[in-house]
Design a protein around this nucleic acid. Structure first.
Length: 581
DNA sequence: GCCGTTTTCGGCCCGACTGTTTTCAGTCG
C-alpha cells in the first residue's frame, strides 16, 4: 500500500461523509490527514514502526491511525466499504462534475435515482432536475455545460506546460495601463509538479477595467464569468484560468491567500485568531474597537512580508506553503535558506548525438554556457540501452578526446566533464566496464529496463548497484512519469540510506514530466543526510531550461544549496569525484 | 476527528459568487 493509495482512501471517506452531511470538522480531519500522508517522505509502514507510531504525524489521531493501520494490514478500510455500500458503484464520479457538490449529488440521487454522470445528463435533458428544490432552469443548463467540461477530461496538467503560459499572461497583464502589479499565484507559484488551474492576480485602481480588458483580450477561448473583480475562463487548451483584481493595499494579503494551500491558509487564519487578528484576502485586521463595527483596523496587507509579520512569522517562500511544518519553522526563525536557480553552476546529466540527443557536445556546452552555467557533464547512454542508441568503448574514447580539446579551448571560462549514464541491469549490475570507468570522470546509474518487478527486488537491485561503488549519481530513482506512469514500487527509504552510506548523490531529475526524486522524497533524502544532484537530462538544447523545475522541486523539499552538488565550484566537484574512485 | 504555555472538552478560516430565494444554501478556492 503506497502513501498515495492510503491518502486516496482517506479522501474517499471524507467525500462520502460530505454526502452524508456529516460534521464539517470531522470531514476536514480526514482531508487534513490525507494531505498529511501525501506530505510524508517515508512509507506509512515505516512511520508506524517508528517512535510514536502514526500518531506522531500532525493531523493523525487515534481514530485515523487505527484506520490507516487496518488499511496497511488488509489493503482496505471496513469503514469506507460500509460507507461506499450506501451508494452505487461509480457514484463518486458525479462529484467531479464542476458545480455539483455533495448536497446536490445526494439530492439528485435520492430524488431522481441518478447514479452516474450519464444519468445526470439524461435527467437534465428531460428537465427533471429543475423541478427539485433549490434547483432551476439555469442550474440545469450549467450542469449540462459542466458535464461537457468534465468529459473533456484533463484534470491536471504538468507544471512545465502551465508555467510558461502563466508567465505570458502575467506579462500581458503588466503591459496594461490600468495594472499596477500582476503575478501568478496558486499551485503554479508553489511550484507543484502538476496543477489543476491557473490563478492570476493583479492590482489596479480600476479593477473593473482590467477585468473587462482581460475578458475581451482573446487570451481566453471562452469567458465563463466576468465580474468587476474576477474573471474566469478557459485557455485555448481548455485549462481553467481565474483572474482576481484587488486594490493595491490588499496586494500582499491577496497574494498570500491565493498562493497558500488550503491547509496553509487555515493554519494562518487560526494563528491570526490566537493573536486576536482576522486574516482574509484583503488584509490582516485587528478586532473592532466597538462591537458595532464589522471589521477592525487594517494592520497589514500591502506586502506579503507585512502579512506574515503581523502574524509574528518570517516571510515563508511560496514553495513551502503546504502546511508541512513551515509555519512552526517560520515562528522559530528556522526556515531553510532555500536553494535558488542562481546557485546552480553545473548540469551533470546531458545527452548528445552520440546516443539519443539532438545536438553535439560542443553545441550543448555553448548552450549551457550561454545560460550562465560554468560546468556541464555529458552522459550518453551506455551500450546495453540499445533503444536509446547506447554507446560503447570506442565512442566514449572519441568523446574523451573531444571533451579534452573543448576544455583546452574553454580554458577557465567553462568546463565539460565526461560521464556516462550506465544502465543498472536486472541483477543489480552496472553497465560500465573497467575501460569505460577509467575514461570517464563520473558515472550516473539509471534503470530504464525491467521496470515491473516487485518492490523488494527492485530495492535490492538498486542497492546492489550502488554497492558496486561504480555509481556517483543515481538518476531519476523511482522512474515515474507524471500523469503517465506511477513510481517504481521501491523502498525509497532504504535506497536513501544506502546512498547516504555510500556517498552517492540522488538526482532530482528536472525534466518536468519526471521531477524524480519528488519533493517529499528529496526532503527525506536531505533530512537523512544524502547529497542531491539537480540535472535536466537534456536531450536537446531547449531542455537545458528544465533546470528551473528541478530547482522548484528542490525548494519544495526544503533543500539548501549546500546539499546539491551542482552548486559546488569545479574544484570541489572534482575533489568529490576523485575521492570516490 | 484532532488538538491543547489560557483547554483532555469545546473549540475548529474566511469570503465571493450564483441561483434560488423572501433571507439563504450550495459550491468553490
Amino acid at each position: 500500500m503506497t502513501n498515495e493509495q492510503v491518502a486516496e482512501i482517506l479522501d474517499q471517506i471524507a467525500t462520502i461523509l460530505e454526502l452524508e452531511d456529516e460534521n464539517v470538522f470531522r470531514i476536514r480531519s480526514y482531508e487534513r490527514a490525507a494531505e498529511a500522508v501525501r506530505g510524508l517522505g517515508e512509507d506509512l509502514a515505516e512511520i508506524r514502526a517508528g517512535d510514536g507510531g502514526l500518531q506522531s504525524v500532525p493531523g493523525i489521531g487515534e481514530a485515523i491511525a487505527a484506520k490507516i493501520e487496518e488499511i496497511l494490514d488488509t489493503g482496505s478500510s471496513a469503514y469506507l466499504d460500509e460507507l461506499l455500500a450506501k451508494y452505487p458503484p461509480g457514484f463518486l464520479e458525479l462529484l467531479k462534475v464542476p458545480g455539483l457538490g455533495p448536497k446536490r449529488a445526494a439530492l439528485v440521487y435520492h430524488e431522481l435515482g441518478v447514479e452516474s454522470v450519464d444519468e445526470l445528463e439524461e435527467a437534465c435533458l428531460a428537465e427533471r432536475v429543475q423541478e427539485l428544490k433549490g434547483m432551476g432552469e439555469k442550474t440545469e443548463q450549467k450542469l449540462l455545460a459542466a458535464i461537457q467540461t468534465y468529459r473533456q477530461g484533463q484534470e491536471r496538467a504538468l507544471l512545465g506546460e502551465i508555467l510558461p503560459v502563466a508567465e505570458g499572461l502575467v506579462a500581458w497583464l503588466r503591459d496594461l495601463d490600468e495594472v499596477l502589479e500582476a503575478d501568478y499565484a496558486g499551485s503554479v507559484r508553489r511550484g507543484r509538479e502538476t496543477v489543476g488551474d491557473l490563478d492570476l492576480l493583479a492590482t489596479s485602481d480600476d479593477p473593473g477595467a482590467v477585468c473587462r480588458a482581460f475578458a475581451a483580450s482573446g487570451q481566453l477561448r471562452e469567458v465563463e464569468l466576468a465580474g468587476e473583480t474576477k474573471v474566469s475562463g478557459r485557455l485555448p487548451g481548455g485549462r481553467q484560468v481565474d483572474l482576481r483584481v484587488v486594490e493595491p493595499e490588499s496586494w500582499g494579503a491577496a497574494l498570500v491567500y491565493f498562493t497558500g494551500s488550503q491547509q496553509h491558509n487555515i493554519r494562518l487564519r487560526e494563528r491570526g485568531q490566537d493573536l486576536g487578528l482576522k486574516v482574509n484576502e484583503y488584509g490582516v485586521f485587528a478586532e473592532p474597537e466597538d462591537p458595532g463595527q464589522l471589521q477592525g483596523e487594517c494592520v497589514a496587507g500591502e506586502t506579503e512580508q507585512s502579512v506574515y509579520e503581523a502574524l509574528e512569522l518570517a516571510w515563508i517562500p511560496p514553495e513551502l506553503r503546504e502546511d508541512r511544518g513551515e509555519i512552526q519553522a517560520a515562528e522559530a526563525g528556522e526556515l531553510p535558506d532555500l536553494i535558488a536557480l542562481e546557485d546552480i553552476r553545473a548540469d551533470l546529466h546531458v545527452h548528445t548525438t552520440a546516443s539519443d540527443g539532438r545536438q553535439s557536445i560542443e553545441q550543448m556546452a555553448e548552450a549551457a554556457r550561454s545560460r550562465g552555467l560554468s560546468i556541464m557533464g555529458v552522459t550518453d547512454h551506455s551500450r546495453t540501452l540499445y533503444v536509446a542508441g547506447g554507446i560503447g568503448l570506442d565512442a566514449i574514447r572519441r568523446q574523451r578526446d573531444e571533451v579534452d580539446s573543448l576544455n583546452e579551448r574553454f580554458g577557465d571560462q567553462f568546463h565539460v566533464l565526461l560521464g556516462t549514464e550506465a544502465e543498472i541491469t536486472v541483477d543489480g549490475g552496472v553497465d560500465c566496464g573497467e575501460e569505460v570507468f577509467e575514461l570517464v570522470d563520473y558515472v550516473i546509474g539509471a534503470i530504464h529496463q525491467g521496470l515491473s518487478s516487485d518492490a523488494d527486488r527492485m530495492t535490492a537491485r538498486v542497492v546492489r548497484a550502488l554497492q558496486t561503488g561504480l555509481i556517483d549519481i543515481l538518476a531519476h530513482p523511482t522512474g515515474r512519469l507524471l500523469l503517465q506512469r506511477p513510481p517504481q514500487g521501491l523502498h525509497i527509504s532504504e535506497v536513501i540510506d544506502a546512498a547516504v552510506e555510500l556517498g552517492v548523490a540522488l538526482e532530482i531529475n528536472a525534466a518536468y514530466d519526471r521531477l524524480d526524486l519528488s519533493d517529499v522524497h528529496a526532503r527525506l533524502a536531505q533530512d537523512r543526510g544524502a547529497l542531491l544532484a539537480i540535472n535536466t537530462d537534456a536531450h536537446a538544447i531547449e531542455h537545458l531550461d528544465f533546470m528551473r523545475y528541478g530547482v522548484l522541486t528542490a525548494r519544495r523539499a526544503w533543500v539548501e544549496a549546500v546539499t546539491v552538488i551542482n552548486t559546488w565550484p569545479l574544484s570541489r566537484l572534482r575533489e568529490w569525484l576523485q575521492s570516490r574512485r
